[in-house]
Design a protein around this nucleic acid. Sequence first.
DNA 1: TTGTATGCGTTATCAT
DNA 2: ATGATAACGCATACAA
Lengths: 329, 329
Amino acid sequence: MREKSQAPTMKDVAREAGVALGTVSKVVNGLPVGDAYRIRVEEAIKKLNYHVNSYAQGLKADRTYTAALLIPNTYTPFFADLVHHINLALLRRNYRMLLCCTDFDLNLEQEYVRMARQNKVDGIIGLTYNPNLSIEENTPFVSIDRAIGPGIPCVASDNFAGGQLAAEKLFDLGCRHVAFLRTGSSLTNEPNKRKAGFENGCLARGLSYEMKILNDGDSYDEFERFLREHITDGRLLFDGIFCVTDTLAHTVIRMLKGLRFRVPKDVQVIGFDGVRYFDEYVCSTIVQPVPEIAQMCVDLLLQENMPAKPPLVCLPVSYAAGGTTREEG
Amino acid sequence: MREKSQAPTMKDVAREAGVALGTVSKVVNGLPVGDAYRIRVEEAIKKLNYHVNSYAQGLKADRTYTAALLIPNTYTPFFADLVHHINLALLRRNYRMLLCCTDFDLNLEQEYVRMARQNKVDGIIGLTYNPNLSIEENTPFVSIDRAIGPGIPCVASDNFAGGQLAAEKLFDLGCRHVAFLRTGSSLTNEPNKRKAGFENGCLARGLSYEMKILNDGDSYDEFERFLREHITDGRLLFDGIFCVTDTLAHTVIRMLKGLRFRVPKDVQVIGFDGVRYFDEYVCSTIVQPVPEIAQMCVDLLLQENMPAKPPLVCLPVSYAAGGTTREEG
DNA sequence: TTGTATGCGTTATCAT
DNA sequence: ATGATAACGCATACAA
């Protein structure tokens, strides 16, 4: 591979089998060929250990059977799950995956879009944060969690319903005064709807709530201050807390324990994402349907003649108890 | 990209700029060209939004600037870290990464090797389990954690030294009778040296130890039985346990708590890998140098004229306290 | 049914 | 320094 191409080509196979080039091509592509010829060709292929050069194929067909996945990293559990399931979904369609970790670098995101196009991938699936990401016409693109522009479908969990579900669960579990804590990108994206859904769910049940929303630069200490401000006579005013992500929930639970409150006895906590460590949920949580998101992204990307791609697809979330709420039994 | 190639080619650029094809190629590749021409070509490229077709490039150069990574999955933390750092290391050399998740499927591993070769990647980095994995000549391959064969370098942590380090730490932390617990592939691979290193470290210090090694099919319950067998008068005979991975350590710690032993007060536990959740180590552990492993794999893979590739490279591990040992202070 | 010839987009070797 | 042309490996329209 490194040196002057010593890999056998169709020409070599043809010579070995004593047939014409086109015949070999047909055998390789499963087109009808006389049995006698076919066998000789197949033997020659085995003997020479021939493999088609998919770059020549791609050059010819203008199709590469490769898709690029743009994602911040692979070690955040939610991202890792996405990578895995998108990889599997692509594999089911006989597609290969070019992985592009962006590390939340906006320029790198753009650079990868350029690279991906230059590398002639058949399409791109991206979970990106660059508000000005420029995607050229006729580059099939499916976005995760963020509406990017007209003609580019966005796939996400039903974040609004997830927020509602969190409110419903906390209410049903007996909470009467709850809090919503949020941090993360202030960019307009789907996960932001968790807040709206939660408010909606609280209002529908007459469940009183307060919110603490951090801005981009703020320290997590702000949350601890917020909690301290809501302690009266050693008691926390909240009996339930909904955190915008499991990661935040994890941090908040530590804070609560540091303040000598017991979870879930004194205060119940629900997170969002469905992060699992060692096969267990790290907290009670709203679970994102990652396998379904992955499958939907791939289907939308590779859909051949879909006249009108849906601009936004929201997939149903579910609730999972994870030890930070007081379920029966 | 889907339809009859409407992307501009060098020919289009040449026509637009009123120069010859070869001149455009030179501009694109940074070869010397008269300034007047260069500017006209650059403007034409901008205007047409031209991108080189790297498949045509690959066809010509027999080089694709793409490497394949074979790994069981992306959600196991150690693998996720590897994927991320290998991706970054490849990027630094301007290489793209084709990710291939094998799910521990031996046939799939072999299939991916074939696909990778067919896809004309410049090389493969693989963490594989197929003992008979067949890698064709002149396919650059670097293996992680397992010696595959002559001419194929293997990169791993210094697992032996890691085992020694675990013994040393337990001893220094006051342990006087310890246990080693192991499960996982019975395949000959580098991580198996953890056991030998640990024994060596214990013997060197006169630290008495016992071992419990599970076979491939055995249930984790065997470990619990082993622990129960070593309880006398309600006291555990071990004051230190070294687990072959952090995942196993996590399970064992749960067992110990279930048996009403306190970690680290009654018994200290050290794992292996350096798995972090929410930025914290899940237990005291021997940390694998993942960024260095990643960099080494890439360096070895892309090393141009390395006459003798080293058969085995072991990189230094380190110890990190993670709350399951009794450090000072 | 099988063989031949052309072109995909690029690079490199030539003349000019 | 620049322009024409062949070749990379494959698929396919067309001729045999």
